[in-house]
Design a protein around this nucleic acid. Sequence first.
DNA 1: ATGACTGCAAAGACTTTGCATCTTT
DNA 2: AAAGATGCAAAGTCTTTGCAGTCAT
Lengths: 135, 135
Amino acid sequence: MAASRKYSRKHEAVLQCLRSTTTHPSADWVFQQLRKDFPEMSLGTVYRNLAQCKQRGEVRTVGFVGGFERFDARMDPHDHFVCRQCGRVDDLPPLPLPEGLDQLVGAQLGAQIDEHSLLFYGRCAACQAGDAQAD
Amino acid sequence: MAASRKYSRKHEAVLQCLRSTTTHPSADWVFQQLRKDFPEMSLGTVYRNLAQCKQRGEVRTVGFVGGFERFDARMDPHDHFVCRQCGRVDDLPPLPLPEGLDQLVGAQLGAQIDEHSLLFYGRCAACQAGDAQAD
DNA sequence: ATGACTGCAAAGACTTTGCATCTTT
DNA sequence: AAAGATGCAAAGTCTTTGCAGTCAT
C-alpha cells in the first residue's frame, strides 16, 4: 500500500516557504532560505520534499528558467511571465482566454488534457530600466 | 565584430534534420539520426549547432520534457501538446486566442514581451489505448 | 520497535567546453 | 594563412539516490 506520511518539520517548512513567496523559486533558493532556520537542512531534503509536494498536488512547476526548475505553490489556474534577462517569474492576472480550451485541444487530438501552461517571455520593467542606464 | 559563419555540412544537416520532422526531437535524437549519414558526428557538434540555430532564430525550444530540451524548426507561431506518459510533442492547429495577448500582458506588467508559449499537458490517444489494453 | 525522514556525499543525466585538428574562405 | 567548425573527452550544473542515523507513531 501507499506509504503513510509522518509529520516532518522540514516538510512543513518547505511548503510554507513556497507559500510565503511569489518569486516562484528554485530548489536552491528554498534551500538557502530554510537554512537560516534549519542550519542542518540539506539540499537533498529540499528536493525530496518538493517532489513529494508535487505528487501530492500541493506544489507545481512553472517551468525551467536558466536550467533551474521553478516552483509555485499557488494551485489555482493562472499564467506567468518570465524575464529572460534576470530570470524573474511573475504571476499574471486572469487573461481573456476562451473557455474550454483544454477540452477543445483534447477533442482535436483525441488526447486527454490535464492542464496547460501559458508563459510569456520577455524583459521585465526593471531590466529595461537597467539597460537604459547602461546606455 | 561578430564571427562570420563558414559553410558546414554538419550544420546544414542538423537544421535539415529538424526541418524534416514533426517530432520536436531532443539533441540526442538528432545526433542518432545524423550519425547514420555522418558516422563521425559528435553530440557536442549537435549541441553547438542547435545553439547556433537558436541564436540565428532558425530553431526554437518547445520546452523540457523528461529532462530533455525539445527543439522545433517551425518558426511560425503555434502551440503544442505534450504527452506526459510517452513524451511525444505535437503541433496544434491554430487556437482561438484573443489578438494582442502579448501586448496586453506587456502593458499590464510594463514589460516587453517577445513571445509566449502555450503547452497542453496530458496523455495522447496512443497512450490511452495502451493503458486500456493493459487493464 | 517500525517505518519515514534526513544529512551527507556519491552518483546520475543532460549539456557545455577546452584543445588539437580539420575545413572553409 | 586565418578564422571557424568538429571530435573527443573532460568538466559543469542541476537533480536524484544510497546508506546509516534520527525522529514520529
